[in-house]
Design a protein around this nucleic acid. Sequence first.
DNA 1: CGGTATCCCATTTGATACTG
DNA 2: CAGTATCAAATGGGATACCG
Lengths: 163, 163
Amino acid sequence: MKKSSVGEFDCSIAKTVSTIGDTWSLLILRNAFHGMRRFEDFQKHLCIATNILTDRLKRLTKAEILYRVKDQDDARRVQYRLTEKGFALYPVLVALKDWGDKWEGNYDQPRMVLRVRETGELIPPVAVRTSDGRALHPQEVTPTLGEGADELTKELVEFRVKD
Amino acid sequence: MKKSSVGEFDCSIAKTVSTIGDTWSLLILRNAFHGMRRFEDFQKHLCIATNILTDRLKRLTKAEILYRVKDQDDARRVQYRLTEKGFALYPVLVALKDWGDKWEGNYDQPRMVLRVRETGELIPPVAVRTSDGRALHPQEVTPTLGEGADELTKELVEFRVKD
DNA sequence: CGGTATCCCATTTGATACTG
DNA sequence: CAGTATCAAATGGGATACCG
């Protein structure tokens, strides 16, 4: 299978990964969530080659995760900002950060802590929860077929092992 | 920068992405969360070349996301199972699925729906929440420096734009 | 069954130079 | 400033054959 055809898998994870699942795109998004908006700033902070940055910004813009807007202060400049679809990636980014902090960090002290802006309250790790807020272990969750399920999805759902 | 050195960024997202952030690894993990455990099953379901699959299983095993165990039923067989560290990736996978379902799906009907195994209750989308369960928009969240913050983290946190 | 070993091709990368 | 153009090198992919 070609890499480019992975997104054609009828699977949300495959599609999502083929859209944003490369190192540079994720790092650009991370910075975007920190308020970074300008080509120059991405380039400097990430030490990314300009052609690669151009490519990724184009892809993210085409995917409607970022949109371009002229900088009011400086007509020569362009800003790349998150769309609603882009903002919706926040749980993905935070889940990645949470996992890395816990399992891949080499540090006793955390480098960055997320808080509620208004109150300063600490934000607990992202989890899969019931609607009343209880965190669930993966084995407490079961996938069920939706109306639109295709063959591969069926295979996968039926695969489920019981222990 | 070489791809292999991205993980050396002092950033949990970069580290995490360099560990699991490629298409095949994510798809293998997706299947593992569905209970898939055998080389052969991964190979058949994903149509992945055996050398690539070997490589990814090794990497995931080395990262202690999967571990190998002999199949009790068939001595020739090996099983790859999720470790605790592997199970901890569940929020990442579900967040990816949720986002893809909402923003990248071409279907009116969902293909797969997650439910609480015991009760059948629907599981709401993964979100960044306060400790009392309120979902937060990214702009309601602010990053603060932890004790272990390095220069790049500081740059990033200070970048935050106010509108 | 669960891999290894090889080979080859396509893609991606990053450095560098250049431009409207 | 925000790209584009070029290009050599590295990487990653899949097919195939083979093995304990």
